[in-house]
Amino acid sequence: MTSFASDAAIERIALGVIDRTLPKPEWTHAAHFAAALWLLRYRRDLTTAPAIKGLISAYNEATNTPNTDTGGYHHTITLASMRAASAHLAGYPETASLHRILDVLLASPLRHPDWLLDYWSRETLFSVAARRDWTPPDLAPLPF
């Protein structure tokens, strides 16, 4: 289902973001969720809103992706995705393998990068305000 056949593969993604060595082409939609799950299980200190913003912004800069009003880090998308990953992870015992958890997550509606458009209008989600700060959904409340 994914290219993450082991927990070690997920850890490599997460550590690559933390130490800013993950090649940019590997920073896919699935990799975002892989890193989120790993961080939520092993580095919760990096999952607060300020910490995750700093982590991803620094990774973007290291991979020559400017954090601007039109590209790079997006606060609302990041926080919504972290909430989704956290809710998904909470349904499993602490001993469950992350790559299996990721497989199930990526078999859900979250597999589509546009899943957020069920909760935000395109105009609101892709606004400068939503990129910079948390903007609540304007179509429907998040289910988690």
Rank of each mutant, 00 (worst) to 15 (best):
M1E: 13
M1G: 12
T2N: 14
S3D: 12
S6G: 05
A8C: 11
A14K: 04
G16D: 03
G16N: 03
V17K: 04
I18S: 00
I18G: 04
H29C: 11
A31S: 11
A34E: 02
A34H: 14
A35P: 10
L37G: 09
R43M: 09
D45A: 11
L46A: 12
T48L: 02
T48E: 04
K53L: 06
G54A: 13
S57E: 15
A58Y: 05
N60G: 09
E61S: 15
T65E: 13
T70G: 08
G71A: 11
H75C: 09
T78N: 03
L79Q: 14
L79F: 02
A80H: 04
M82I: 14
A85L: 11
A85I: 01
H88S: 14
P93W: 00
L105I: 07
A107Q: 10
P113T: 13
L116W: 00
W120Y: 15
R122V: 09
E123L: 04
E123T: 13
T124C: 05
T124P: 00
L125P: 00
F126S: 00
S127C: 01
S127K: 11
A129H: 02
R131T: 12
W134S: 12
T135S: 09
T135R: 05
D138Y: 02
L139P: 11
A140G: 01
P141N: 05
L142I: 01
